[in-house]
Every structure is written in C-alpha cells, then in structure tokens.
Design a protein around this nucleic acid. Structure first.
Ligand SMILES: [Mn+2]
Ligand SMILES: [Mn+2]
Ligand SMILES: [Mn+2]
Ligand SMILES: [Mn+2]
Lengths: 219, 219
DNA sequence: GTTAATTTTTAGACAAGTCTAAAAATTAAC
DNA sequence: GTTAATTTTTAGACTTGTCTAAAAATTAAC
C-alpha cells in the first residue's frame, strides 16, 4: 500500500512524462511537487526500491509498467470524483480539483467501480481529460487548449477563438491567423505572461490577453 | 487543521464519553484506538495543547466544547458518506464503515453540505445512528441493539426478539422475559461470547446464540 | 498504613517525509 | 580542455506518530 505522498509523486511523474519522452529530472519533479530537490531524491529512491520507477543516480527517473498502471488508477479516481462533484453535487468545474486531490487517495477498488457505474461510465472529466478504465485504458483525446496553457515547444492548429469582437477578428486577420493555422509556442515569459509563437515561419509575440483567447489542438 | 490521527482520537474520545460520564482513562483510550498507552499519552498532550480536550496527568481526558464540536463534524461526515455509499452506490450497510473511516477526513465543508443536500438531509445513517447537522445538533435516537452488542453495565428494556420459533418463546417464558423486561449486562465473556445479565434481581448467563436474538433499547 | 498490583508517564528509539547547507557529479562556457 | 555554472546527491536535523522498556504515580489488598 502506498502513502498519499508516494501516490502524488507517481501522478506527477506520469504527468511530466506526457509532455516529454526523456526521463524526468530531479529538479523538474521538485518544481512540479513544489518541494526541494533533496526531498525528491529521497522519494525517488523509495519508489525505485518498490520498482514503481526506474532510477539511476544523476539520470532522472521514469515510470515502470507497474508504476504507470498505478498512476493511471489514481488519475482514474481523481477524474471520476471530479465528475461526481460537478454532475451530482453541482460544483463548478473550476472548484473541484482540490477536493479530488484528496478523494483520489481513498483506498477501495469496489468504491471506484461502483462510482464509475453510478456516473454512467463517463469518458472524460469536467476539464475534458480522459478517464482511464479499471485496466488503465483510455481514449486519447485531443483537447483544445488556450495558447497561454500550451507547454513550451507545444505545436498545434487553431480550432477556435474566445472573443467575437470585430477588433479581435481584425487582429487575427492582420497576423493571418484563422482556423487551421499552425502555431508553435517558442517561449513563455512569466513576468507578463506573454508568449512568443512561430506562425508561418515568423516569430510573433502575443500578450496574455490574446494568448488566452486563441485555442489550438495540440498534435 | 487536524491530522487524520488527531481526528480519529477525538472521535474515539467522543464515542467513549457516550458510554460513561467520567473522564476517559489513558488505557481505555489506548484499547479503543488499538494502540499503546504511551502513544495515547503523547497524543492527549498534543490535543490538550490545542485545547480540544482537557487533561491532567494521571486523571484521564475529556472533550472541551470545541473538541466536542469538532468530533461531531467528523461523525457527521462519516455518517453522511455511509448514507451515500448505501443509498446511491448500492453498498450493503455492513461494508461501508471502513470506507467512511477514510472519507470522513476529506477537508471541505462545502462538500459535506452539498452531499447532505444531495442525500435529502437524512436524519440517520444506515446503522440507525443519528447524523449531526452543520452545527453539531442531532436528535437523540434510542436505537435497539442485540444484547450481545450492549456495552458492559449497559441497561435497557426488551423491545423485540429475532426468532419466532416456539422453542425460543418457551425459553423466554421460562426466564420470565417479555417486552419491557429490564435487563442489565453485568459481564461479557470473550472466550464463548456469552453474557451474564441481571433480570429482576437474578443473574442469568445467556449463550451468544440467545444474546444475538434479544434486542433491548438502551436507556 | 505498608506492601503489592495496576495504571500512567517518561526516556529513548525508529520510520516517514520534509528541510538547509555542503559536497559531488554533470553540463556549459570560454 | 580547464574553469565556471548548474544539477543532483549526501549529511544532518526536525516533526509526527508510533513503539518498548523502565520509572513514577495511583489504586487496591491485606
Ligand atoms: Mn492527491
Ligand atoms: Mn480534471
Ligand atoms: Mn477515520
Ligand atoms: Mn454508521
């Protein structure tokens, strides 16, 4: 049986592995877990002992098959509880994450399966993320996300915008952006949340206002 | 914010206080928590520092007003989750306690209140125990329980039996037991689960078979 | 009212999970 | 290809919750 902390680490490693295929560095994981690299080293050793991740000193870590399966079961619980909170208890989709972060650690496979049945076997959670089944299998869904939420180097094509004003459409026209336009995020600036993107071979800087309104489907 | 362990201790102290009005001894609490007296001493010091219980060395402990209120909120959550599991997820009433033992520690007053509303403001849990409202107020319910489940020194009157055979009725007649008969449990023997009870001033030993069939309402 | 039995507390230890500060390994720069 | 910057690990410490063994206080017995 795993502790809540171990489960949270597994989930974080899984999440980071979705964005990059290389092994996960200690610092990156520390950042994700909002903790210190030294704490990560301790935990990574423990998870490695339990054969949930493979780990070599100074080489970062990676989920093993068992580790990945375990992570997916926690994610399954997290997302099913989110569906419950939104669909049955009338929570908003923006206020369920914290609670699901706790509920995902409840230990009872029977509870998870009954909950899934009760909810009518939902395929996605309130944020559009896919829900793995009891074997960890799920449909890969190409979610559309705002440019501001795209990871560094993330690439995709425009599938929508969230502003119908003529001013905004003029802005899009000026930069030759329309449905299907290929965009890649080259840099993200924390100080003003602006992004530097690559469109048709040209580098353009978008303010956070704009980055929040353009939605792309990541490849 | 309290740890799960602190919450479980508070609940245990509350539960023991229901059976006796004197302060709760270290050994009794250790027994209830399935732990060692020395561990209890450590914990009561901590809870006392937080002013959730009053505690004097060698004198046992007692819940303060705040401690009692806190305990009742945890019990409220425990019982609401039990109702959810039985009424919505089709669990049997005998398989929900363990899971509720985990769910009761989820931190979100909003979740508890939404859950209560969703369940239609139930007054009792699947075991007939009353559910406190958000202010800790609940109706005292005189549950009937089998003689085998009555606490030591527990006293009450017979409200029913769970066997309609003539043999059992003859048995009851022989000992002059009927609806309303006053019974007090004087001793309980673990080795065969028999009980020694006091009826009309006479001590009688009942086998576990009999003790399971006679239901009394505890005063 | 001493002595004995029981209860309760203290002392010291351990595992889990975290931290800071310092050392070691890796990677980047010149 | 050294030197410098960065990343990662180690060493040592702290908190929480638990344990065993021993000491102290309380209660029971004679
Ligand atoms: Mn979590
Ligand atoms: Mn989600
Ligand atoms: Mn509990
Ligand atoms: Mn119950």
């Amino acid at each position: 049986m795993l502790t809540q902390s171990e489960e949270n680490y597994l989930k974080a490693i899984y999440s980071l592995s979705e964005d990059q295929k290389e092994s996960i560095s200690t610092n990156l994981l520390a950042e994700k877990m909002s903790t210190k690299p030294s704490s990560v080293t301790d935990m990574v050793k423990k998870l490695s002992d339990k054969e949930l991740i493979s780990y070599q000193k100074y080489q970062g870590c990676e989920l093993t098959a068992i580790g990945k399966k375990t992570a997916l079961q926690i994610i399954r619980k997290h997302r099913l509880w989110e569906v419950f909170l939104v669909n049955k208890l009338n929570f908003g989709w923006d206020e369920v994450h914290e609670i699901a972060e706790q509920l995902e650690h409840i230990q009872s496979a029977k509870l998870t399966d009954h909950l899934e049945e009760y909810l009518g076997y939902p395929k996605v959670d309130p944020h559009g993320d896919p829900i793995p089944d009891k074997n960890g299998i799920f449909e890969k869904i190409n979610k559309s996300i705002a440019l501001s939420d795209v990871n560094l180097k993330g690439k995709g094509s425009v599938v929508g915008v969230e502003d119908g004003s003529s001013g905004f459409f003029q802005f899009l026209k000026r930069y030759e952006i329309g449905l299907g336009t290929e965009i890649q995020v080259m840099e993200k600036f924390d100080f003003d949340l602006s992004v530097l993107v690559l469109i048709n071979g040209k580098e353009i800087s978008f303010s956070s206002v704009v980055a929040n309104k353009i939605f792309i489907q990541v490849k």
